[in-house]
Write a protein that binds this DNA or RNA. Structure first.
Lengths: 341, 341
DNA sequence: TTGAAAGCGCTAACAT
DNA sequence: ATGTTAGCGCTTTCAA
């Protein structure tokens, strides 16, 4: 199990091109970088050899050499690639990065803090130009340190406390409020909330909105009706079971994210319960297939693609001008009315 | 919009550690790499400074220097991150990579060949140890060249023609056959097929299975009932519309992948049609929320996580032993019976 | 046990 | 217009 790397598959370097073209490596480099100070004839000659040899510049060498110029590499650190919300965010980032000639290193830490730390370290030592990250919590020391060090960073979905950083987030409290408000207006009385990981700021903000909406409608707050999970499908399944097993089960459930919603739906369907007659449900996060769910899901839509896009734009602007004042973009959510409540 | 990189956020290098510890950089390097030939006292002294300075080795320099040793970096090139199937595959790869101390560069080309080429180039010039890729088609020249060059590669989901390469795929023909066979047995007569991108081998293999199943049941082949899309949600929507608008619409639809299934469902629901009474549907690719769809979806399940896991294992084995004979792993699919047909 | 130095592929400053 | 060279941070002989 050694590094038996007689493997060394051949790489064409500047040197080879230079030799074959009968010029210096500097000239080849100039041709590659479209430096105008090259004699047209020389340029042609060199370009020919480049083609022949299929020369491709080595990004690693470039990055090392240019430690303080642009490497055109961005890092993306997201909590859960299985959550379609983050996939959508990633798509937004990707499109902007592609347009601006940035390559991306995408790291998924699956809500695992240890993994997150590892990836953060790796990214840092890859000499990236900047990164977009959804920190585990708002006191994520590793990310805070990176910001303080001066690495261009934009936070998405979740902010950071005690440090000035660009962020693109969503009106979680309002979104949750509108959801629970809608439930209450529709006459539901025992409204439950299944939360994602409570250390995630958005989870708490959504809980806040939930509480405020109950209060606004004079509905009592029953601690039994609030359940804390880990933001994943399985916890949606399990916590929904707990809720339904309650002596006085809820008549409606507000689920804290995508995956939890899907988990809760699974439980409800397994029990043969009817939505919304037996239990109503409203989810945070819309999915493009919400209409095909049983029944079509009413949900709070976050503009995920937009979040990613804006974040990437912010990041690139910051990279180009590290001194610009930080901005905090707060996007609106939208209540998608369908028939699950 | 220049590279105004006075940005240069500080990086601690071997040099600094060496200086502060009063040893040579070679010694620090030895300590970092747990080389036993260091005096215990020296080791301690150096380790202390490393901690103090929070020194982190620069992966870029390491890769450049060790062009022919291991870089512990793998590339993953997938066609569509919005397809939950690939996300699942990616998760499998990720877990294995993590266990084996490999970092991952993930590239999503969104079924865009130009993007795929770009990413392939980037990966190559990042001096990765190897990569896992789902090529656009089986004559993907770029990937073939890379294989020929000797870069360790494992193909997933789709193979390559004319070159010896490790691959992990699925029994597409069989899977499709079982789906359509099930439809026919259930009495459906006009069975349509919505295909993904026809240049993708799996699309054609699934069509093959479809045709064989029709033949096996003595059902006529109606070219009108075969539609070719681009493997994405939108084409599922559109092609399903076309199908339903036919003078003699199908009584059942076999959808070529995940996203197409979701698109077709959307169309059917928008038209207020009942599944399976008005049209039945069976999908290639299962989703963990299939049970929560309306109605619970009958589908051909691919062991996606397993595919990724096996592929990553193959790749690491190949990296460790480039001379090992190539293998072609063909995993089985499973028909998940629910109530959409 | 430790250090000096070469060199990975590249860019940019400087020299010609 | 072109070439020479230093150096990015690291590992690895080779010498001491």
């Amino acid at each position: 199990m050694k590094n038996s790397n007689e493997n060394v598959y051949k790489i064409v370097s500047l040197n080879e091109v230079a030799e074959k073209a009968g010029v210096s490596i500097a000239t080849v480099s100039r041709v590659m970088n479209e430096n105008p100070k090259v004699h047209p004839e020389t340029r042609l000659k060199v370009q020919k050899v480049i083609k022949e040899l299929k020369y491709q510049p080595n990004r690693v060498a470039k990055r090392l050499r240019n430690r303080n110029a642009s490497s055109n590499l961005l890092g993306v650190v997201i909590p859960d690639i299985q959550n379609p919300f983050y996939v959508e965010v990633f798509r937004g980032i990707e499109d902007v990065a592609y347009e601006n000639q940035y390559a991306l290193i995408m790291c998924n830490f699956s809500q695992d803090e240890k993994k997150e730390k590892l990836y953060l370290d790796i990214l840092q030592s890859e000499s990236i130009d900047g990164m977009i990250v959804a920190p585990t919590d708002e006191r994520d020391q590793k990310v805070i340190d990176l910001v303080k060090k001066g690495l261009p960073i934009v936070c998405v979905d979740r902010g950071l406390i005690g440090v000035d950083v660009d962020e693109v987030v969503v009106e979680n409290r309002n979104g949750a409020f509108s959801a629970v408000d809608h439930l209450a207006r529709s006459g539901y009385q025992r409204i439950a909330y299944i939360s994602g990981l409570p250390q995630i700021p958005s989870s708490r903000q959504r809980e806040q909105g939930y509480r405020e909406a109950l209060a606004a409608h004079g509905l009592p707050l029953d601690q039994d009706l609030i359940r804390y999970g880990d933001s994943r499908h399985e916890s949606g399944v399990k916590l929904c079971e707990e809720l339904l097993d309650l002596p006085k089960p809820p008549d409606a459930i507000f689920t804290g994210n995508n995956l939890i919603t899907l988990g809760a739906l699974e439980t409800i369907h397994k029990r043969g319960l009817h939505i919304p007659r037996d239990v109503a449900i409203i989810g945070f996060d819309d999915m493009y297939w919400s209409i095909s769910l049983n029944p079509p899901l009413t949900a709070v839509r976050q503009p995920a693609y937009e979040i990613g896009k804006r974040a990437a734009e912010q990041l690139i602007m910051r990279i180009n001008d590290p001194t610009r004042p930080t901005v905090s973009m707060i996007l609106k959510t939208e209540l998608m009315l369908r028939s699950s409540c």
